[in-house]
Amino acid sequence: MTASAPLLRLRGLTKRFGTNEVLRGVDLDVAEGEVVCIIGPSGSGKSTLLRCVNMLTPPSGGTVEFDGTAVVAPRESRWNPLAGRGERRELQRLRAHIGMVFQHFNVFPHLTALENVTLGLTRVAGLDAAAAAERARAELEGVGLTEKVDAYPATLSGGQKQRLAIARALALDPRLMLFDEVTSALDPELVGDVLGQMRRLAADGMTMLVVTHEMKFAQEVADRVVFMDGGVIVEEGPPSFMRDPAHERTRAFLRAVREA
């Protein structure tokens, strides 16, 4: 553990869906500039953990701290329309600093590539239209979509959609990026495209929390790899630990992944 406070600090995170305990006490720190990859079998709670960071899924218990500030889900009242307004505004402010990229892209289909990126710039970052367009163009250039600024997502390949989603998040100058299996829905030949983008981002010093099945990416890019199973972190360490994991569950998982 470094002496300075981590950028992201999760403590005792739990999540239940009904009686299904999906997270059962997760502690995790991510330092500024660190790339942490989360691996583990399907259903182990990786996505849920990631979504708790920005409260897309509010945890049942535990705390999320981002840059020393508690991230809390706004109170939801069934009676008082004004309940939780301040908390919601605070959460929106924090979310702008935490970029998220999804497995299924979730780009906005009714907006052009440029408009996908400018929406957050004008409505969240408060830029005027001209400044937003300029910034968005630069961001799209950064992910190799210069030719596609006026294209609608329907005309883009999966890899291009995912790079657009990355540009949309990066435009808001996030301090942390969350990636949830962002290459799982891509045709194999487009995977490298998106992973390359993420490698560059990591090389530029972005703090990243990455749920992935790409073991090679984890091996080569991660500063730390976290293995999750059954809603807990079973084992974590530098990527080299994957060559000789201490736990049988980790070994079984890695064996299964390699055989696939």
Partner: peptide
């Protein structure tokens, strides 16, 4: 996606 970028 809209929530994640901090839109109201």
């Amino acid at each position: 996606a809209g929530n994640a970028i901090g839109l109201s």
